[in-house]
Simulated scan of single mutants.
Amino acid sequence: SFFLPAVLDRKVTFIAKAEYFTTPGVKGRLTAAFFKGVGQLPVDRSGARGAGEAAIKAGIEVIEGGGLFGIYPEGTRSPDGRLYRGKPGGLARVALATGAPVIPVAMIDTEKIQPPGKVVPKLMRPGIRIGKPLDFSRYQGMDGDRFILRSVTDEVMYEIMKLSGQEYVDIYATAAKRQLAEAEKAAKEAVKAEIAAREESGA
């Protein structure tokens, strides 16, 4: 969300968790100033459903005010640089509620610039590819239909895949992260069991 505004003339508003804006102290004020400066909008994310509704409302307000609203349809960073399934809520609902076109954007090499878990990013420029606007006016007023929301989201993800050249994985990134964490935990437990077995056999 920090790279895209650098290549556009217009401000792009993204959502960010409210804690970034309310942390006390000097560090908290600097963090809040930074996030405001790069076009982040605070959203209270307490409670999954409440967070989703707040994000959708914020997006609609930004667009109806004439602004650009940026949203990551995967909902979280990719754990391995592949493109994961988009979540059918926010992006599609904002587009159908406002009638605004969706502009697919592919961010290239962000996982190399700041790999998951790393605090300090590498100094390199990401690639940014901007696709043609997608018109979903044919679905106007159907934002309560989950099949339409899924269809809109999948169409956007397909365009992002074409722009990025990424391998597409038809599961949610959150599920992939959970699987990776479970596999890592199982591997650690296997190593501990192996060490314990060797110590026992050597005793």
Score class of each variant (00 low, 15 high):
G165W: 07
P126R: 09
F14T: 00
G59S: 04
A48P: 15
P121C: 09
F21Q: 05
G66W: 09
K87C: 10
S151W: 13
T110F: 13
D9R: 14
S1A: 14
P121V: 00
R178F: 14
G144T: 07
A175L: 14
K118A: 11
L41P: 06
T23F: 06
E182F: 10
A100F: 04
A32D: 08
G37Q: 10
V102S: 06
K17G: 09
P104D: 01
M107L: 15
R138A: 08
V12T: 03
M107N: 05
Q40V: 14
T13G: 07
A51Y: 04
V102L: 01
Y168Q: 00
T76S: 01
A95L: 00
S201V: 13
I128W: 02
F3C: 08
F136Y: 08
L123K: 12
F136Q: 02
R77L: 12
G86A: 10
I108Y: 04
M157V: 06
R10W: 05
A97S: 14
G65K: 12
R178P: 10
I15Y: 05
D44T: 12
I108W: 07
I103Q: 01
A173N: 05
L4S: 05
G50M: 04
L149C: 04
P5C: 01
A6P: 09
K11N: 09
Y139A: 01
K87V: 11
V7A: 05
Q179D: 15
S137I: 10
K177F: 13
V120P: 13
L134N: 04
T153G: 01
A16P: 10
L96H: 05
E155Q: 13
L96P: 09
L96K: 03
V156N: 02
T13Y: 15
I148S: 07
P5Y: 00
I71D: 04
G52E: 09
T13D: 07
R129L: 09
K122T: 07
Q40C: 15
A6L: 14
A51S: 09
V12I: 11
